[in-house]
Design a protein around this nucleic acid. Sequence first.
RNA 1: GCCCUCGUAGCUCAGGGGAUAGAGCACCGGCCUCCGGAGCCGGUUGCGUAGGUUCGAAUCCUACCGAGGGCGCCA
Length: 582
Amino acid sequence: MHNPVALLTERLRAAVAGALGPEFAGADPVVRRSAQPRFGDFQANAAMALAKQVGRPPREVAAAIVEHLDAGELCSAVEVAGPGFINLTLSADALARAAAGLLADDRLGVAPAERRRVVVDYSAPNVAKEMHVGHLRSTILGDALVRVLHFAGHDVVRQNHLGDWGTPFGMLIEHLVDIGEQEAVRELSVGDLTGFYKQARDKFDADPDFAGRARQRVVLLQGGDEASLRLWRLLFEASKVYFNTVYDRLGVLLTDDDIAPESFYNPRLAEVAAELEAKGLAVVDDGALCVFPPGFTNRDGQPLPLIIRYSTGGYGYATTDLAALRYRSLELQAGRILYVVGAPQATHLAMIFEVGRMAGWLGPDRPAEHVPFGSILGQDRKMYKTRSGDSVRLIDLLDEAVERAAAKVAEANPDLDAPTRERVASLVGIGAVKYADLASDRIKDYVFDWDRMLAFEGNTGPYLQYAHARIRSIFRRAEASGAGGRPPGEVVVSEPAERALVLQLLGLDEVVAAVAESLQPHRLCTYLFEVASAFTTFYEQCPVLRAPDAAVRGSRLALCELTARTLALGLGLLGIDAPDRM
RNA sequence: GCCCUCGUAGCUCAGGGGAUAGAGCACCGGCCUCCGGAGCCGGUUGCGUAGGUUCGAAUCCUACCGAGGGCGCCA
């Protein structure tokens, strides 16, 4: 245990119980990083609230807590300040011991969480349809959350809920028949999905004959017609090839094993409908089988239905979503089910979850959570589009990112050989796009801006990658000078910049736990940026290679090592690679 | 009409019960012959509005204003 907040909370908790009686043993001491250095490293803010409860002056309560506090080997100073804050300053020894602990720990102090099976639904592109910026957020956020949850110690099950079923497939299959199987497969697998879909759509709208064939084809397909299914599989497989090239480019963890498409649930739809009916939850309304979860109303204030079975007898996405929810809960045995899906689907998912609870598939011990996110906007504050008004193809966006990054990298470091430069450009370009997406609170829309995301200054991916590469270069230089960089020495914390850096490095456990709980990767981004900032100050004020003596030099190299590892690990949890040179 | 989300510095964003609200960019003025400026220091400007809860509110609640989104057989 290297997490100072956790350590101090434990000690303060005992002190509160000692000072005020065992009935207060459960009270949260409210330990936080201090707002300013003159208030110490941490502060415990519980005394004011507790004073109210026990009817004693807050400073007196704070003093009593301090009196009962056993933190001698942790703190060099403990004092009551202001209205009743308890300011805690960690001793240099405690900081040095904690830093040494981090250095010896592959997990850099991150304590494993109580293991749960967490199902994460994300990405979910549509077969025979282009991946665009909307899929970008779900894919990147989902990937980062999967990595964080896994590292935190959970058993993560990825679910890529591909859109591969429904009415559009009639027209897509007929279009495939029209242009020939080989040509269709070629177009789709190389990524000309926009053209393919649009042509089918145009014919559907313009040609009544084609539209009729398309409708007929849907009936055949959903009726299990083998010839139609074979054509449908062609579409599916070709699209999968394309999706995998995009995923590969993006560097996300999704594989074919994670694909659980809509069609996977087809055999379960009738079952779901029957179960909801049997439980008395679903009723027929206007010929459609519906569930009316409480609390949802339509325009006219009437109860809003979740339609389980259309009056035509077909099933829609609501039923598929319910079948998926049931599968994840009962068959995958999920302890937590996450949906990384855009904010506009909030009402739909809330209804799905409510029905899931009514059906007994969800409960307090197995919750489903919507992880909503906002839209990507252009500089005009409207949905990010190309100049011609089309949605931006994800693959084009990634190409442009790498191209722009290549120019930046060539400028920053002209000495890199061509293959390295190419590799670094890819890591920096993709990293920049990912980081820009992850760095602000996901619930808000964010403004897409190439210049800002690729800047080497500010809270950006390239800045953090650069910070990491620069630290690695210190070690290369140390080794080249023959003085030897490794193994790093024993940590000694004396300078203010050193203690600030160590304090920051000790915060990883907290932030990883916070991200795993709140599902907000931007907190990790903020943390990493603060690590890099603290390092910059340290590097500015504390000579490393030209330190006054070998012991100080060894200690500072150890701090460099810890910082580099923290940055690399943290970026890795966001799905971003940190090259050793760039 | 009802519901959801958002509104913090000129711009892009953190902070989401605790002390004097921060960062990057932009602007102005200084500094450093520095381990690859990821430079450093100082200055200017801000919590949409009005109430309420609280020892304490940018943070929680209510209303209003503004922006975006959703609201029955598409997914």
